[in-house]
Design a binder for these strands. Structure first.
Lengths: 161, 161
DNA sequence: TTTCAATAGTTGAAATGTCAATCGTCACGG
DNA sequence: CCGTGACGATTGACATTTCAACTATTGAAA
């Protein structure tokens, strides 16, 4: 058992390397494919689509900029620029928060809801085809990605029910 | 069995949504953490680190720009800009290909090998801690990510041996 | 009250990535 | 040879992301 301890090593062994590379490659290819499909078919990037989805699930008032940033794992600055562009495009509007004048809410416009409705089937198709149908055991994938997320401080996340 | 067919749907059901979100969140958090650690500790981004790794594994002559681009899933244009920056930094050098004068080779300089050696332990530590140690079954993870990659046209990839 | 550290968000500049030409070279059919 | 279309890579303009201030507001302590 001379090499089986979990001590620190300065590099990964061959098999661990392979796990990492496989993970990186799959993720990059998948995100790229989703982004490409959304861009070509409905002229929307994956990051922008993500924001529309979050806002689409929020109530009438939308979300505070900070909440939106956290839920999408964007920096404050990035969310500010991104929402400004979405506002330009007419899909999102910002309203300042009545109870805390530092804050503002972002919410979907009618046109934003239309755009989201247009994009959803494209996203669903690609995820279905290349993520969900590609694996033989979705539950097992879910458990693994949940563990990784938890290790990185992710919230327990919306329970499925 | 009224809803169990694999027909096309226009949106994902709740449980499929959850799989997708968990996958996206884990991947974003992991890549962000690796990038952050590399940036803070050795002042190198994850994309740049990836390129140094590929070049570090290549022979004396390095790799053709196109090969490097493919192995890192970068566009031709992106690889050109990125290598130009790495060359600026003194970690990479370009030499034009003798047998095909359109092409060029990129290879690590001594300084580039040093930089890579400095970065490797940082990368290994974070991947170990948040990917490999976080999951209970690395083989199962590997199988899943391989399937996803294959579904997106990935090469069978370097066999582990 | 007045001060002051902390918070929410924005801003502009620099770095990075994407997109659409473009350049030089190659290979192949006349 | 001489086109001519395909290929490998680069370029510059533009879009996005990051980074480091900065503004305005809040809450709380003196």
């Amino acid at each position: 058992m001379s090499t089986m301890t979990t001590r620190e090593r300065t590099s990964l062994d061959t098999s661990d390397q392979a796990v990492w590379r496989s993970y990186l490659l799959a993720a990059r290819l998948l995100f790229e494919e989703i982004d490409r499909s959304l861009s070509e078919e409905v002229d929307l990037s994956l990051p922008d689509y993500t924001l529309l989805v979050r806002l689409g699930e929020a109530g009438e008032d939308g979300l505070r900029m900070g909440e939106l940033a956290d839920s999408a794992v964007f920096s404050r600055s990035r969310i500010s620029h991104a929402v400004a562009r979405l506002e330009q495009a007419g899909w999102v509007e910002r309203r300042s928060c009545p109870t805390d004048r530092r804050g503002s809410f972002a919410s979907l416009t009618e046109s934003g809801r239309d755009k989201l409705a247009e994009a959803e089937p494209v996203h669903a198709r690609v995820v279905q085809q290349h993520l969900l149908a590609a694996v033989d055991d979705k539950d097992s994938l879910r458990r693994l990605t949940d563990s990784i997320g938890k290790s990185l401080g992710a919230e327990p996340g919306d329970p499925v029910c």
